[in-house]
Amino acid sequence: MIRVVLPLHLRTLSKVDGEVQLDIGGLVTTNTILDALEARYPMLRGTIRDHETRARRPRVRFFAVEEDVTHDSPDARLPEAIATGAAPFLIIGAIAGG
């Protein structure tokens, strides 16, 4: 079971309390996680990646097992710890403020 941690505003939007658990049969990549996430929570479509191009929104980041995988290919295999659920896949709103 894949574990996904959403940022606060997307947890609110999708009415999720805590982590999301997704069952992905097959290769575990950023795109397959996001596909499964959007299938379960369609209100998240367009909030993490573009509706049409499926490109990541500029201020969204992806972390996996203490690595920033934001700029890796979204179709690249993620670490085994993500695939087994030992570690969560983190979706982060980029830091900004003042």
Binding site: E38, A39, M43, L44, R45, H51, E52
Partner: peptide
């Protein structure tokens, strides 16, 4: 509600639920 974003609405051709109120 976010109109059309209920998971129970019909799927599109790609098998994804419709959730296009922000599209």
């Amino acid at each position: 509600i976010q109109p059309g974003s209920d998971a129970s609405v019909p799927s599109d051709n790609a098998g994804m639920p419709q959730g296009e109120s922000n599209k």
